[in-house]
Amino acid sequence: MIKAGIVGGTGYTGVELLRLLVAHKDVELSVITSRSEAGQAVSSLYPNLRGHVDINFSEPDIDSLAKCDVVFFATPNGTAMKMVPQLLEAGAKVIDLAADFRIKDTATWKQWYGMDHACPDILEEAVYGMPELNREAIKQARIIANPGCYPTAVSLGYIPLIENNLIDDAHLIADAKSGVSGAGRGASVATLLCEATESVKAYGVDGHRHLPEIRQVLGGVAGHDVGLTFVPHLMPMIRGIEATLYGVLKTDVDDLHQIYAERYKDEPFVDVLPLGSVPETRSVKGSNMCRISVFRPQGGDTVVVSSVIDNLVKGAAGQAVHNMNLMFGLDEKTGISQVALLP
């Protein structure tokens, strides 16, 4: 059994990780930390875990965490990088669901996250945990930078076009919408029911923290820097991300759908829908699936891609478990093959 620890088990990402790991046949939950809830039973805070998790929250303690085979960080940005060196030295593997190890350039990291990086040597080693791009590297990794939710939806939507050099990647536009759980569990006026319901608004228009991450991923695929306008929106729903992606074709293409179908045919968690189908966020709720459709409106030179994920699963905890499966040589679908919830 894989002994797993979770640092930061009280947020929405943390409880989603717990929901998946308690049903994973090869995982034993050993440590679940929370400074604010230390001593309290996990199931008393999250009653959906009653009968599945018989552990109390504890203070983050390196000695206890170092006894785990893998440690997940579901913590605020800037937390994991202060503890990871000791855990790696002790032989534990690490999967960070925050942003500490996603941005490779330390100056860019400081620009967007407002702090110096605590361990740039380990940052260089960290593998970006998108299995559809880095499967083999993930299998050999000690530390994984789990992708952000928006970068997952946007990158998976653009990758086939950029890999095949089909679009002008200097002028990409990503119009994305997320449910309020993406803002986290902390109290905020903007995400109160009376503030967020029956309303849609753009945010981070001048620059969102996921922008440099998406540019880094797509630039790595392209082999050069890409130009991207990324505008996220807050939607009056709990879960889900829909990313509508635009690009201008550089050449005539007979069958865009076939290009997508071929690229993702062996990917267990990317579903290219039939021609003319439009993916819905409700079709991936609670699942680790990304569903994608590609369109060429009126046969013109603009390609439109729609990509949907559950931000808490494929965009966070589910992708983290997928990475763990690869790191430990398990069937990569283990524990994350749940059917989406409908209605």
Rank of each mutant, 00 (worst) to 15 (best):
256 L>P: 00
282 R>Y: 15
173 I>V: 14
180 V>I: 11
271 D>T: 10
198 E>N: 15
272 V>K: 11
167 I>C: 03
265 K>A: 10
268 P>C: 03
205 V>Y: 05
165 N>S: 15
163 E>Y: 10
266 D>Y: 08
177 K>Y: 03
234 L>F: 10
260 Y>F: 13
192 L>Y: 12
238 I>R: 15
282 R>H: 15
218 L>T: 06
215 R>M: 15
182 G>H: 08
179 G>W: 05
170 A>D: 13
162 I>D: 00
215 R>V: 06
209 R>N: 07
213 E>R: 06
204 G>Y: 12
160 P>V: 04
188 S>Q: 14
227 G>R: 15
194 C>R: 14
187 A>I: 12
208 H>D: 15
271 D>L: 05
164 N>F: 01
279 P>N: 12
189 V>M: 11
276 G>D: 13
219 G>K: 07
165 N>A: 12
234 L>K: 05
183 A>W: 07
217 V>L: 14
207 G>R: 08
218 L>R: 05
250 K>G: 08
168 D>R: 12
186 G>N: 08
241 I>G: 02
179 G>M: 04
224 H>A: 15
221 V>M: 05
163 E>S: 13
199 S>I: 05
189 V>I: 12
236 P>M: 11
218 L>I: 10
197 T>E: 09
186 G>K: 09
181 S>N: 09
173 I>L: 13
236 P>K: 10
263 R>K: 04
276 G>E: 11
